[in-house]
Nucleic acid binder design. Structure first.
Length: 380
RNA sequence: GCGGUUGUAGUAUAACGGUAGUACACACGGUUGUGGUCCGUGUAGAGAGGGUUCGAUUCCCUCCAUCCGCC
């Protein structure tokens, strides 16, 4: 058993690098691996916090920048933090907003100083610096914060631009870490918000190596691998994940940002990743693509028009126990929120359950069997 | 019954005497740290018959259907 203050590995798979651990936060413990649905503005679209509890979703991730733009950070602060504001009993992560460099509607430019955004609400120009971002995430009072990173575009981007993003990410990571430590210096360890560093570098091994080493040197509570799920192939992605993992300290939690496809989650777990998040399950649900034990189900197909069966006959969620494919399809086609909600609930339940199963299989030494089975179902 | 109107994809519409577009719907892909209303690809059309013309969906005639008005 590898034990540090905040992360304890309790089980290790014999055949792969998959592992089970416990992450200790100021709000309590959470077992890894886990998947976080995105609650950008403080809610997982269409779901209540009670429903998240019911499904035993262990953690969600909100977006500090997006909350800030709409004063959500101020309101959450008055409640004593995002968790109390949304009445959620799980662990709250916050993303810095670095990823919003991918949002042409609000992103303006970035300099060494920070990132410039346009607030769509009032047109105001905002400079988001690493220091300001740390203050913001502390005000929101999530259990785990992310560094402000520089997100290079995947398409039409040169290696030089990615190198520049790596350099900026390292520079900002140092500023984040220093300021975050200063702001919490009077708090006891158990009351502190955790801070994860983010590794960039695209699909370039040399840049990833540089980024990983520079971020490790700053000694964060955990390490995030960013910049994937943007258009690279799965092979390119996992070649880098494997490489980065080999450079990271074993006793720190690893978070693969933005990844939420069942096959990729299991691949990440195989390589020793502990945390995932993605808008994929919720966004796909609203658009009619559902995850099932038989693979991907496109519920809007005409084949489901009169289908009285559940989304997934092997699923025990309340949606599958009570509602037909035909009903959910009809509601989705006619843009009724109920359809979006039922589909979202099922997809989140599926992923949460998939990871629970993965943990059981790791304990039994049968993780690879589950992985093979799921890969087979999602092929093609 | 008389006079007129209008007939273009499943629906709603556009242009044109010379390759018939668009939207929605439908089918199939995609969706990965903002985007409850997303993106891409595809199937599918001239009411019927005749005339003029090198060529007619377009111009002309008849029929059919439609809607409006009058009796």
């Amino acid at each position: 058993m590898i034990n540090t203050d905040i992360f304890t590995i309790t089980h290790k798979d014999k055949k792969t690098s998959a592992r089970i651990g416990i992450l200790q936060t100021k709000k309590g413990k959470v077992e890894t691996p886990f998947f976080m649905p995105v609650a950008t503005r403080g809610s997982v679209k269409t779901l209540t916090s009670e429903e998240l509890k019911q499904m035993k979703v262990p953690a969600v991730i909100s977006n500090a920048l997006i909350l800030y733009l709409r004063e959500g950070s101020i309101i959450a602060n008055k409640f004593g933090g995002i968790g109390k504001f949304m009445n959620y009993n799980g662990i709250n992560f916050t993303d810095s907003g670095g990823f919003q460099m991918y949002s042409p509607s609000i992103y303006l430019k970035s300099t060494k100083e920070g990132v410039f955004f346009r607030n769509p609400l009032n047109g105001e120009k905002i400079l988001m610096t690493p220091e300001k971002n740390m203050e913001l995430q502390l005000k929101i009072s999530s259990e785990v914060a992310m560094c402000l990173d520089s997100m290079p575009m995947y398409h039409n981007t040169t290696k030089t631009q990615i190198e520049d993003a790596v350099n900026k990410t390292s520079l900002w990571a140092k500023r984040c870490k220093t300021h975050h430590d200063t702001l919490q210096k009077n708090l006891s360890k158990s009351k502190r918000q955790l801070l994860f560093g983010i590794i960039q570098g695209g699909i370039y091994s040399d840049l990833r190596e540089t980024s990983t080493k520079e971020i490790i040197n700053l000694d964060f509570d955990g390490y995030s691998i960013g910049g994937f799920g943007l258009g690279e192939t799965i092979q390119e992605e996992f070649k880098i994940v494997k490489q980065v993992k080999s450079l990271l300290p074993e006793n720190k939690p690893v978070y693969l940002m933005g990844i939420g496809n069942p096959v990729e989650i299991l691949k990440g777990i195989e390589l020793g990743v502990d945390i995932f998040d993605s808008r994929m399950p919720t966004q796909n649900a609203r658009r009619g693509t559902l995850f099932t034990s038989e693979g991907k189900l496109r519920i809007l197909r005409e084949a489901c028009k009169f289908d009285k069966g559940p989304i997934d006959k092997n699923c025990k969620c309340f949606v599958c126990k009570n509602y037909s494919r035909a009903f959910i399809r009809y509601q989705l086609i006619h843009d009724e929120f109920t359809g979006k909600k039922l589909a979202t609930y099922h997809n989140i339940y599926y992923l949460t359950k998939l990871i629970e199963t993965a943990k059981e299989k790791i304990k039994q030494g049968k993780f690879h069997e589950l992985q093979k089975e799921v890969e087979e179902k999602y092929k093609g």
